[in-house]
């Protein structure tokens, strides 16, 4: 176990290092500089500004300054909003994004599993077909399209929910539905197919023969084993939800990290681009790492230190 964790940890560190370097290279190949739009800055001011942000140093020196910034997690002040540091922006945006993402994934997991169980128990009946049609639709409709339709229906036509911003639980309903539907559909399909497989196993027959109640059979015996594949794809779903927050934050005018990221790219705000990318990536990679470990802990059949043969 420990060896496995160590191995995963090394891979995690390498991935992060590559992202950090890649971000640096890409960012500095973006045409244009952060001071392009500032008219009337004379050369002395420009030089001063560049010196302040270390932009006058040779690239490799900037790279090391940057590595140091990543290591200490201090990205310095934003270029476009000099009064705020990158950490300030992250501190403001991240809790909002996290809230949006977390609520969505919880809704997705719970409703997806329930939908999957119902479909599996009513296999080949009308309920099964309805549930699976909902699931395929959920996978097919992109979240930003769903968001626009939700706003149209519930905010504009019915006027029962607010269309944008992030200030009360009522404001959270539409964005979280838009974000949770896709992952919910994926989880429902996966749960259904593994449930169908598990329900034919001998130990389920055994449990039935013992006279256990159907609810106990489903939740205590079948579901536990059917959930393993769901745990494995949680990492991927999380990545999807994180990127989904980008576009939904634009549509619903939610002041999260995605908003700062897109803004910073458009304004070449180097420190903010670096900060958000590195932070996002680190968060995501750490989550994938956690999912892997949790998977190993949940399923005793998997010996983590052995080489996986697939």
């Amino acid at each position: 176990m420990l060896r496995y964790i160590l191995k995963r940890f090394t891979i995690m560190a390498v991935t992060l290092f590559i992202i950090v370097t890649l971000t640096f290279i890409l960012m500095h190949s973006i045409p244009g500089s952060p001071f392009n739009q500032e008219r009337g800055t004379n050369e002395a001011v420009q030089a001063n500004l560049e010196e302040f942000y270390n932009l006058d140093e040779p690239l490799y020196v900037q790279y090391f300054i940057y590595l140091k910034a990543v290591a200490t997690f201090d990205f310095g002040p934003s270029i476009k909003q000099p009064t705020a540091t990158v950490n300030d922006l992250l501190g403001r945006g991240f809790p909002v994004s996290l809230e949006l993402g977390l609520v969505s994934i919880i809704i997705a997991v719970i409703s997806g599993i329930l939908l999957g169980i119902i479909a599996a128990l009513r296999h080949n009946e009308i309920i099964d077909y309805i549930a699976m049609t909902i699931a395929v639709l959920g996978i097919s409709i992109p979240n930003f399209i769903l968001a626009t339709q939700l706003i149209q229906t519930f905010a504009v036509n019915l006027k029962i929910l607010p269309a944008a911003t992030w200030s009360s639980p009522m404001h959270m309903i539409l964005p979280t539905i838009a974000l949770a539907t896709g992952p919910m559909a994926i989880i429902a399909r996966l749960t259904r197919s593994t449930m169908l497989e598990v329900l034919t196993q001998d130990y389920i027959k055994m449990a039935r023969a013992k006279g256990l109640s159907p609810a106990k059979i489903v939740f205590k015996h079948a579901l536990r084993n059917a959930l393993m594949p769901v745990v494995t794809i949680l990492g991927t779903l999380l990545a999807g939800i994180l990127t989904g927050t980008f576009v939904l934050e634009q549509i619903f005018a939610i002041p999260g990290m995605g908003k700062y990221f897109v803004e910073s790219i458009n304004t070449r705000d180097y420190p903010v681009i670096m900060g958000t990318t590195v932070f996002y990536s680190a968060f995501l990679i750490f989550m994938l790492f956690l999912v892997d470990i949790v998977y190993g802990l949940l399923d005793p059949r998997i010996k983590l230190h052995q080489k996986e043969v697939k």
């Binding site: 890409l26 990545a239 990679i285 994938l288």
Partner: peptide, 21 residues
């Protein structure tokens, strides 16, 4: 190992950065 590292990259972020570049 290389695939594992690439798999961990948040691809949309990379894609967005590439598009900007």
């Amino acid at each position: 190992r290389i695939v594992e590292i690439l798999y961990g990259l948040p691809y949309l972020l990379i894609v967005i950065l590439l598009l900007v570049v």
